[in-house]
Amino acid sequence: MKNILITGGAGFIGSNLALKLIDKGYNITILDNLSKQIHGEDPIHTSPLYQSIIGKVKFIEGTVTSRADVEAAIIDQDVIVHYAAETGTGQSMYQIEQYANVNIGGTAILLDLLANKDNNVKKIVIASSRSIYGEGKYFSEEFGDVYPKHREDSDMKSGDFEVRYPGVSQPLKLVATDEDSKIHPSSVYGITKQNQEQMIMTVCPTIGIAPVAFRYQNVYGPGQSLSNPYTGILSIFSTLIKNNKAINVFEDGKETRDFVYIDDVVDATILGIENDAANGHVFNVGTGVPTEVNTVVSELLANYGKEVPVKISGNYRLGDIRHNFADLTKIKNTLGFEPKVSFKDGIKNFAMWVNTQEVNADKYENSITEMKEKGLFK
């Protein structure tokens, strides 16, 4: 189990995982297309993520949508960590074919090759996502556990951003999503991650390969892309602050996410690679703590020691969820995983790293304009 392929391994999570695995004595191969949206216009020369791994791994520049690239990459591999994917909920709602081709099609090519070609692969770890839970899990005094549907455009237009459930007269109580929670994604991205996970968990046991799925919450930390305006509010807000631009907080700022630090994500993933108790299971990876967007803004401003205008605008994006945070009972009991980095400490580390980086041109408004034109930003 010494040879590990990481698809999408030049990305934020993949590169950090690769470096930790190298320290532990593994031989790492990476298949990555060096997407300019993530790595910039000249990735080979200017991408910090690429520079962090090159010379330490066997690097294959290619794509999971190419059968030839995938076939070359899986030779002599014992384990595959499958990260290659298009990411971001908003963009997925209008780049539908691209998300389906890469996320679903790329996974189908990988599995088809493993099912029909001789190989040494014994385990596949798939990066799933909290997005597959949609609006998450709530408790109702009248009905018990309930899973609200996507929020209505008409409600959010009037400033009502909370979720609703038919027949419930009392306010719903937000609770953590466990792995048995209802799967009902509210974006194309979420649908493709659900499909990836289900294909891996269904096909692998039939071909003698152990599957493990990790449903990551919002992963952040030093090294994440500051140039990609479609994913990661920490990067988006940081870039705005560093460019002395106003922050537009969507909805009422009370929407929450479970922010999990990159080191914790890498540690959880390695437990899945090394521990046979993980085989055949899906696990949440997060902190189990919901954090408001308003808190994110105040913590970033405090850590950068700067003031910029902050507008709670009531704008919203169709496909976004209101709340979600992870129940970690299963991964704690099965793999002994405990997140070590609090949001307060993690965001301090992240801000210190951002302060060492060149300030990027802000591409955020372009992404918002694009979403407005598609009718997805209100």
Rank of each mutant, 00 (worst) to 15 (best):
P171W: 14
D178W: 03
S187E: 04
G190I: 03
N195Y: 08
L174P: 01
I183V: 14
L174A: 10
I200K: 01
T177M: 12
S169K: 15
Q196R: 00
T202Q: 13
Q196A: 03
E197Y: 02
V168H: 08
V188S: 02
P185H: 06
V203F: 10
E197Q: 10
V175Y: 04
L174C: 09
V188W: 03
P205W: 14
M201G: 05
P185Y: 05
Q194N: 09
V188N: 03
I191M: 10
V175K: 05
I183M: 09
D178I: 03
P185R: 03
T202V: 08
Q194G: 05
S169T: 15
L174F: 13
N195F: 09
S187P: 06
V168G: 06
Q170M: 14
V175G: 04
I191E: 02
K173E: 15
S181V: 01
Y189D: 01
T177L: 10
S187W: 07
Y189G: 00
S181W: 04
I200T: 04
V203I: 15
N195Q: 12
D180K: 13
T206A: 12
T177R: 07
V188M: 08
V203H: 03
I191L: 08
G167Y: 10
P205I: 11
A176I: 00
D178V: 03
P185I: 07
S169E: 15
I183R: 06
L172S: 07
G190R: 02
M201F: 08
Q194F: 08
N195T: 13
Y189E: 04
T192F: 00
E197D: 02
K173C: 11
S181A: 15
P205G: 10
G167F: 11
N195K: 11
I200V: 12
K193Y: 04
S169P: 09
E179T: 09
S186D: 11
D180C: 09
P185F: 06
Q198S: 08
M199A: 05
L174D: 08
G167R: 09
Q198F: 07
T202N: 13
G167K: 13
D180A: 12
Q194I: 02
L172P: 01
I200P: 02
C204Q: 06
S169L: 15
P205C: 13
S181C: 10
G190F: 03
D178P: 00
N195V: 11
V175E: 06
K173M: 14
E179Q: 06
T177V: 12
E197H: 05
I183F: 13
